[in-house]
Computed example of a mutant assay.
Amino acid sequence: MTESRLAREIARTLRHERELAGLTQAALAARCGLSQAGIARIERGDRLPGLTTAERLLTALGRQLRIEVEALDSHLDAALDEMAGTVLAERVEDLRLDRIIEALGGLPYVLTGGMAALLQGAPLPVDAVEIAVRRRDSPQFNTFLDRSHAQRWNARWQEWGGIHPGPEEPGEHRWRTRYGELRARMCEELPEPVEIRLGDRTYPVEPLVEVEVTDRRTAELLGRYRRRLTAAGAAPGGSAG
């Protein structure tokens, strides 16, 4: 297997998306005009595909390629160390979680992603409130977005605004509102939450075991956090264990 971190990332992503689509390697090969053996090599991490090949594979799965950059591993470690030294209530206040929840009114929601992990004891770097919302509640969600003067993230132009803010539109479900940044996962039914109490408020939160299935980025950070605990000789117990 190649030692390329990027090859491992592509391998994991391609396998995950193919399995979500319910396709075998042979079926995907037939869709995109590649060989089953070639796809198997990519999914094992033995081969790093070119951009054209990666786009063909993802297009066949109804997905598109997006290029992002992130902090180096050492910077991620520093961010985890910094977060571990902060008070949870202060971080929740900085993210304006309560203001956003109050502004949502009676909209049914469950906290997800990094926000859910944070409330369950994992000191992860989180820069936005993340929620799950049912698709059938989109009209009510739209009312909140209008009332909060929300600007949706335009991934094409890498800026806020310029596109319809409604959650029924395709693209990233990410908004800048008057209360703070909000990201949403639209779903048919809300995940079954656990109740997390902080101060005088109780939050409906997606369990960590589910977060690690639905949010790949948070799952990677959780894995990194636990490995660091283990390397430091601490048992990764508590809610984040």
Rank of each mutant, 00 (worst) to 15 (best):
residue 139 P to K: 09
residue 63 R to T: 05
residue 11 A to Q: 11
residue 125 P to N: 03
residue 93 E to V: 09
residue 34 L to N: 06
residue 231 A to H: 06
residue 135 R to Q: 14
residue 139 P to S: 11
residue 136 R to D: 15
residue 165 P to K: 12
residue 150 A to T: 12
residue 159 E to C: 13
residue 93 E to M: 09
residue 87 V to Q: 14
residue 195 E to Q: 14
residue 141 F to V: 06
residue 212 E to N: 11
residue 87 V to A: 10
residue 138 S to L: 15
residue 198 L to R: 10
residue 171 G to K: 06
residue 190 L to R: 03
residue 93 E to N: 08
residue 87 V to R: 15
residue 35 S to L: 02
residue 152 R to N: 00
residue 231 A to W: 02
residue 76 L to F: 07
residue 17 E to K: 08
residue 121 G to S: 09
residue 47 R to L: 07
residue 200 D to V: 13
residue 37 A to M: 13
residue 134 R to P: 09
residue 137 D to H: 10
residue 120 Q to P: 02
residue 37 A to C: 11
residue 135 R to F: 15
residue 25 Q to V: 06
residue 146 D to V: 09
residue 1 M to E: 10
residue 209 V to K: 07
residue 56 R to K: 11
residue 206 E to H: 02
residue 207 P to F: 08
residue 118 L to F: 05
residue 34 L to W: 04
residue 203 Y to T: 05
residue 236 P to C: 00
residue 36 Q to D: 05
residue 115 M to H: 02
residue 235 A to V: 15
residue 228 R to T: 00
residue 127 D to M: 12
residue 48 L to S: 06
residue 10 I to F: 07
residue 130 E to C: 13
residue 106 G to P: 10
residue 236 P to G: 02
residue 119 L to M: 04
residue 48 L to E: 04
residue 151 Q to Y: 08
residue 43 E to K: 00
residue 222 L to S: 02
residue 40 A to W: 03
residue 203 Y to K: 13
residue 54 A to G: 07
residue 205 V to L: 08
residue 97 L to Q: 03
residue 171 G to N: 05
residue 30 A to F: 14
residue 138 S to K: 12
residue 104 L to W: 14
residue 153 W to D: 08
residue 49 P to F: 01
residue 17 E to M: 01
residue 82 E to T: 10
residue 154 N to Q: 07
residue 6 L to G: 11
residue 105 G to A: 11
residue 202 T to G: 09
residue 145 L to A: 02
residue 16 H to M: 13
residue 208 L to K: 01
residue 3 E to K: 11
residue 62 G to T: 12
residue 71 A to E: 12
residue 195 E to T: 09
residue 132 A to T: 00
residue 238 G to R: 09
residue 215 D to V: 10
residue 4 S to H: 12
residue 32 C to I: 14
residue 130 E to A: 14
residue 49 P to C: 06
residue 136 R to I: 10
residue 150 A to Q: 02
residue 127 D to A: 14
residue 48 L to D: 03
residue 91 R to P: 02
residue 70 E to F: 12
residue 239 S to Y: 10
residue 53 T to D: 14
residue 241 G to K: 02
residue 168 E to P: 00
residue 42 I to S: 01
residue 109 Y to S: 08
residue 176 R to K: 13
residue 228 R to M: 06
residue 229 L to W: 11
residue 224 R to T: 06
residue 143 T to R: 08
residue 62 G to W: 06
residue 205 V to I: 03
residue 142 N to M: 09
residue 104 L to N: 09
residue 124 L to T: 08
residue 176 R to M: 13
residue 202 T to I: 13
residue 240 A to V: 07
residue 81 D to W: 00
residue 32 C to Y: 05
residue 227 R to C: 07
residue 141 F to G: 04
residue 137 D to N: 10
residue 205 V to H: 04
residue 226 R to D: 04
residue 236 P to M: 00
residue 172 E to I: 11
